[in-house]
Simulated scan of single mutants.
Amino acid sequence: MSKAVAAQTAHISLIGYLLIALRLPLMLALLLICVPLHYLWRMLGLDRTWPRVFLTGVGFVIGLRIRRQGKRVPGALLLANHVSWMDILALSQAANSAYVAHDGLARFGFLKWLCEMNETVFVARHRRAEVSKQAVQIRAALDHGGTLTLFPEGTTADGTVLLPFKSSLLGALEPLPEGASVQPVLLDYADAPQIAWVGEEPGLDNFKRILARLKPLRIDVHFFQPLEGEELTNRKTMTAAARGQIERALLSSRRNLS
């Protein structure tokens, strides 16, 4: 954790605590409204609507302000850089996306429950026996026209650089399902180093820092052209091509800010 972030975590102002006290009840109210409606929609066989409403609402409550660039391809697998837990809020609003997540999240009952409502596909990266089952789940989600997001870095970075993309995370998509699209996405936060969840910062501390923030959280969500041709040959070519597009755009954005 950087010294600047550590200082922010250690000292939350009175206004910050007032914002936390205001935002937490609003988030709880959203949960209490959306959960019953979600289960009602499921009983009626309707689409996954209320998880997106909840996540979009939480983003609005904490001050997330999104600007979309490029055209989203419905039903694509999105490969995005990973900066914060707020990435989930941003892509839920901008792309109505579900997610491919590490099965470690499933150990936390409340988080697992929230993730499952949004049709998260949990993957066990180190259990080879589960690969075929996970592939079926991912393919089924894509076959039904759903949008899935995978974060190939496997962890969060500070938003100014990209970590290596792990092609192994795309193992369940090799070969790519017929007709499936793979679309790179850049999540570009205006104040990335100040809001990123990196290093040894506990998740709860990061959550409190974000809720205590008065300044809006501005993010540009860049949708690039889907991969095509030889870029789709295998998981290594897909991750290399996606990372190249995202990195070029990220470097260009950082130069423009400097």
Rank of each mutant, 00 (worst) to 15 (best):
L251Y: 01
A90D: 09
S92T: 12
W41M: 13
V123N: 09
A180D: 03
A21Q: 02
L187V: 07
T237I: 08
A196G: 09
G199Q: 08
L187Q: 01
V5A: 13
D143H: 05
R248Q: 14
L250N: 03
D143T: 02
R68Q: 14
P51Y: 10
D143K: 11
D205I: 00
G57D: 04
L186F: 09
Q194M: 06
Q245A: 15
T156I: 01
S252Y: 01
P164D: 14
V185H: 10
I210G: 06
T9C: 11
R68N: 15
T155M: 07
M238L: 12
M43R: 15
I246T: 06
V136P: 05
E201S: 04
V5P: 01
A141W: 01
A10S: 14
I20T: 00
S92N: 12
V53I: 15
P74V: 01
W113F: 15
A140D: 13
E178R: 08
A192L: 09
G203K: 07
N256I: 02
I195H: 09
K112T: 04
T120R: 00
E247G: 10
E153I: 08
M1S: 11
N234L: 02
A141D: 05
W85C: 03
V61Y: 07
T156S: 12
E178M: 11
G104T: 13
L78S: 08
W50K: 00
A196M: 05
A94P: 08
L250W: 01
V198C: 14
T239E: 07
L142K: 01
R67Q: 12
S97Q: 03
G16W: 00
G104L: 11
G70F: 09
Q183M: 07
E230T: 15
P25Q: 06
